[in-house]
Simulated assay, not measured.
Amino acid sequence: METQQITIPIRPKRKFVSENLIIDSWEKIESLFDNLVEREISNVAELEKWMLDRSELEAVLEEDMAWRYIKMNIDTTDKELGELFTFWIKEIAPKTAPYSHKLNVKLVESPFLKDLEKKKYRIYLRSVNKQIEIFREENIPLFTTMEQKQQEYGSISAKMSVEVDGEKLTMQKAAQLLKDTDRNKREEVFNKISSRRLQDEKVLDDLFDELITLRQQIAKNAGFDNYRDY
Rank of each mutant, 00 (worst) to 15 (best):
D165V: 11
A158N: 15
E187P: 10
W88M: 05
I70Y: 02
D115M: 07
E19L: 07
L116Y: 00
Q217P: 11
V37Q: 14
E62T: 15
D229K: 12
K173I: 14
R126C: 07
V44C: 07
F16W: 13
E62M: 05
V60D: 04
F85Q: 09
M72E: 11
F224K: 05
L204G: 07
K15L: 01
G166L: 11
P94K: 01
N191T: 12
H101S: 02
L47C: 10
E38R: 13
V164R: 03
S31H: 01
A59I: 01
S155Y: 10
Q199G: 09
I140L: 05
A219E: 07
A59H: 12
T86V: 06
R39W: 11
I193Q: 10
L211I: 13
K15G: 12
Y124W: 11
Q148G: 12
Q216F: 10
I89V: 13
E167D: 12
E138A: 03
D205Y: 09
R11A: 10
E2A: 07
L198D: 15
Y227G: 06
I22Y: 04
N20D: 02
Y227R: 13
S157N: 15
P111H: 05
K28Y: 03
R126N: 03
V128Y: 04
L204V: 04
S195C: 13
F143A: 04
E187C: 06
E187M: 14
L169V: 14
V60M: 00
T144P: 03
P12S: 08
L198S: 15
Q216L: 08
K106R: 01
T145V: 05
E62G: 06
L84W: 06
P94M: 06
N43L: 02
Q176P: 12
M146N: 07
M160T: 09
F208T: 06
V105A: 05
T181G: 15
K106P: 01
T86N: 02
I41R: 01
V189G: 10
S110D: 07
H101L: 13
D78T: 13
E91C: 01
E40I: 14
I41Q: 05
A174M: 11
E83S: 10
M160W: 03
D78K: 11
A45H: 02
I132H: 11
Y153F: 06
L107Y: 11
Q199H: 14
Y124M: 12
V203F: 14
N184F: 12
P9W: 02
A158W: 04
R186S: 08
F190L: 15
K95A: 01
S127R: 04
I92V: 00
V60R: 03
N184I: 13
G82N: 03
E30K: 00
R68D: 10
K192H: 08
N20R: 06
D115L: 08
R11L: 06
I10N: 12
D209L: 11
I193F: 09
M65D: 01
N226I: 05
P12H: 00
L32V: 08
R186P: 08
I140E: 03
E91L: 03
E58V: 10
N129I: 10
T77Q: 07
S195P: 14
M171H: 08
I74N: 04
S25M: 00
H101W: 09
N184C: 14
I41A: 11
G154S: 05
V128Q: 00
R196E: 15
D24P: 12
K95W: 06
N43W: 03
F112P: 10
L113M: 04
G82P: 01
I22Q: 09
D115Q: 10
R68L: 00
L125R: 02
Y99D: 08
G154D: 15
D78P: 14
E30N: 04
N73A: 02
